[in-house]
Design a protein around this nucleic acid. Structure first.
Lengths: 127, 127
DNA sequence: CTTGACTCAGGACTATACTCAATACTGTAA
DNA sequence: TTACAGTATTGAGTATAGTCCTGAGTCAAG
C-alpha cells in the first residue's frame, strides 16, 4: 500500500502520516525500489489507534508514551493523570462561566458603554 | 514612567508591554528625548484591564474587540458568545471524563499490557 | 571614564499538530 | 511521447501569547 492509499484508508492527510513517522509514532516503513514507502494494514490499525487516543484527549506525546508502556499500571497512572487534568480544566471553566454569567446578568444591554456593567466589572480593581 | 517601571508596577514582562503595543492593545506612548517610551498611570490601568479580561477567558483579539466596542449591546453579545464557547468546552470535557473513567474502572491495573482493558478499549474499532 | 543597568528595534524561538509549498523524481495511461 | 498524478525531501507557515536574543545606544553612580 502506498502512502496515498493508506491516507485514504485511514482518513488522514498524507503529510500527517509522514509527520507521525517523524515523531516516531509510526515505525519507518519499508521502501520499494523507487523509494516509495510501502505500508501494510498494521499501519492503518496503528493510525486508528492514535486517532482514538487523541479523541480521548491524549496528546501525541502521550500517545507515544502509551506505545512505550509495557505495564498496565503505568497506563492506569497515565489515564488517572489525564482525568485529573480534565477535571481541573472543567473546574476552571466552571468558574469562568459563573463569572461571565454574573457579568451578563448585570448588563443593562442598551446604551453607551459608559453605563455598562460588564465593562465596569472588568474595570474594577477586583477581578 | 519608563517601560521597566511600568512593567514592575503592573507585574508583566517588559516585552509583553511592547507586544501589546504592537497588537494595538496599548496606544503608542510619548517618547522622551532619548527615545525611551514614557508612560503614565493610565497605562497601568489599561494593562490591568487586559489582564482581567484575559482571566475571564477572553483572547487578546477579543480584548481588542472589547476596546473598540462602543455599544453595550455588542459587549453583551461578545460575552454571551464566550459563555456559549465555555459551556461547549465544558460539555466536551465532561464527555471525555466519562469515557476515561469508564476505561479506568475496567483496568485490571496489574500484569502485562496485553490483558489491559484500557489498551483494549483504545484499540477497539469503536471509540 | 568606566561599569552596570536600562532601553531600543528587529527578529528568532517556544509549544502543538499539523498543512502547504517548492523542486525533483517516478509511474501510468492515452 | 507527453501529460498528469503520485511520491520524495526539506523547509516554511498556521494560531496564540508571549519570551528571549542580538547589537547598539543611553543613563547614573563611583
Amino acid at each position: 500500500m502506498t502512502i496515498g492509499q493508506l491516507a485514504k484508508l485511514s482518513n488522514v492527510n498524507i503529510d500527517t502520516i509522514r509527520y507521525y513517522e517523524k515523531l516516531k509514532l509510526l515505525p519507518k516503513p519499508k521502501r520499494s525500489k523507487n523509494g516509495y514507502r510501502e505500508y501494510n494494514n498494521d499501519y492503518n490499525i496503528k493510525i486508528n489507534y492514535i486517532l482514538r487516543a487523541k479523541a480521548l484527549g491524549f496528546t501525541l506525546r502521550e500517545v507515544k508514551e502509551i506505545f512505550n508502556t509495557n505495564e498496565c499500571e503505568d497506563l492506569f497512572e497515565l489515564t488517572s493523570e489525564k482525568i485529573k487534568d480534565v477535571e481541573s480544566r472543567i473546574s476552571n471553566l466552571n468558574n469562568l462561566n459563573k463569572k461571565l454569567k454574573f457579568l451578563l446578568k448585570k448588563c443593562p444591554v442598551t446604551g453607551s458603554i459608559d453605563n455598562c456593567s460588564i465593562m465596569k466589572s472588568i474595570l474594577k480593581t477586583q477581578s
